[in-house]
C-alpha cells in the first residue's frame, strides 16, 4: 500500500478535483468529478474509498476553490497560488499560466523562481469562461466534446460580437436562423471566447511561455486559436484539470 503524503482538493464551481502525491511530489492518484452541491460529503465519500487502496493515515490535506470552506483541511490556499504552484512544478519554468475554468478565468504571471508576480481574474462576468461554451452547447443540444471538433473542421467563421455568455447565446441562434452554417457559428463562438482570454492576458502583460490549465484546455480549438492570437504554442499538461489540486497537494508537502 503506497503512502500518500499530501492530498490536494480543488472544489471548483463546476468540478471537484482530488490529487494525492507521495513524498517526492509524484502523483499517485487524481480524480475529477462533477461537483455536487454537498461537496463536503462528496469529498468524504471519495477519500473513504481511496483509503481502501492507499495509506492516508498521515496525509496533509490542502483545499482550494469556492467550495473549500466546506472541506475539512489542514490548510486553505487560494486557487491562484495553487495553480501557480502546480503549473510551475509541472513545467519547471516561470511564464504566463492561464486557467480557464467553469466560471472563473485566471491569468497568472509566474516568476523564474515560481512566485506569483501578478494575477487577474474575470470579475462580475463569466464571459470567456467554460460556461460560455457550455451554455451554447446545451442550447444547441451538441455534446461539449463535439464543439471543438466542429470548430476545428469548419471552413469558415462567423463573427460573434457579444462577449456576454448570455447574449452570445441569442446571437448564435439569430445567426443560425439567418441560415449561417452551424460549424461557422461555433468557430466564431470559440474565437470570441479566445479573444476575451487574450485580452485578459495582455492586461497583466504576456510573458512566454504560455501554460494552460483548467478543463477548457482540453478543447483543441481553443488551444489552436490561442496560438493563432498570441503567436505562441501553449504548453498543456497531460491532465490540465488537476493542476490546482496538484499545486495544493504540493503545498501540503511543505507543511
Amino acid at each position: 500500500m503506497e503512502t500518500v503524503k499530501s492530498i490536494g482538493i480543488d472544489a471548483g464551481s463546476t468540478t471537484l478535483k482530488i490529487v494525492g502525491v507521495n513524498e517526492e511530489g509524484k502523483i499517485l492518484f487524481s480524480i475529477v468529478e462533477d461537483a455536487d452541491p454537498k461537496v463536503e460529503e462528496q469529498t468524504e465519500h471519495i477519500l473513504n474509498k481511496l483509503k481502501e487502496n492507499y495509506d492516508m493515515e498521515s496525509s496533509k490535506i490542502v483545499a482550494t476553490g469556492y467550495g473549500s470552506n466546506l472541506i475539512k483541511a489542514d490548510k486553505k490556499v487560494t486557487e491562484i497560488t495553487c495553480h501557480a504552484k502546480g503549473i510551475y512544478e509541472y513545467f519547471k519554468t516561470g511564464g504566463t499560466a492561464v486557467d480557464i475554468g467553469g466560471q472563473d478565468n485566471k491569468v497568472i504571471l509566474i516568476s523564474k523562481n515560481g512566485k506569483v508576480i501578478d494575477f487577474i481574474m474575470n470579475d462580475k462576468c463569466a464571459s470567456g469562461t467554460g460556461r460560455f461554451l457550455e451554455n451554447t452547447a446545451w442550447r444547441l443540444k451538441i455534446p461539449m466534446e463535439k464543439m471543438a471538433e466542429l470548430a476545428l473542421n469548419s471552413d469558415g467563421e462567423v463573427k460573434i460580437s457579444s462577449t456576454c455568455a448570455v447574449f452570445a447565446e441569442s446571437e448564435v441562434i439569430s445567426h443560425l436562423s439567418r441560415g449561417q452554417k452551424l460549424e461557422h457559428v461555433i468557430k466564431g463562438l470559440h474565437r470570441a471566447m479566445v479573444k476575451r482570454i487574450t485580452s485578459m492576458i495582455y492586461t497583466v502583460g504576456f510573458n512566454p511561455p504560455l501554460m494552460l490549465s483548467g478543463g477548457v484546455a482540453k478543447n483543441k480549438a481553443v488551444v489552436k486559436m490561442l496560438e493563432e492570437e498570441l503567436g505562441e504554442k501553449p504548453r498543456i499538461p497531460e491532465n490540465p484539470q488537476i493542476m490546482g489540486a496538484f499545486g495544493a497537494a504540493l503545498i501540503g508537502l511543505s507543511q
Partner: peptide
C-alpha cells in the same frame, strides 16, 4: 471591482478569493 453604495455589485466569495490571493502574493 465593486460599488461604493450598491451591494448588488459585491459578491462576498469572489471578493474574498481575490483578497486572499493578493495577501498570499
Amino acid at each position: 471591482e465593486a460599488d461604493h453604495n450598491d451591494p448588488r455589485a459585491f459578491a462576498d466569495e469572489q471578493i474574498k478569493s481575490r483578497l486572499k490571493a493578493f495577501m498570499e502574493m
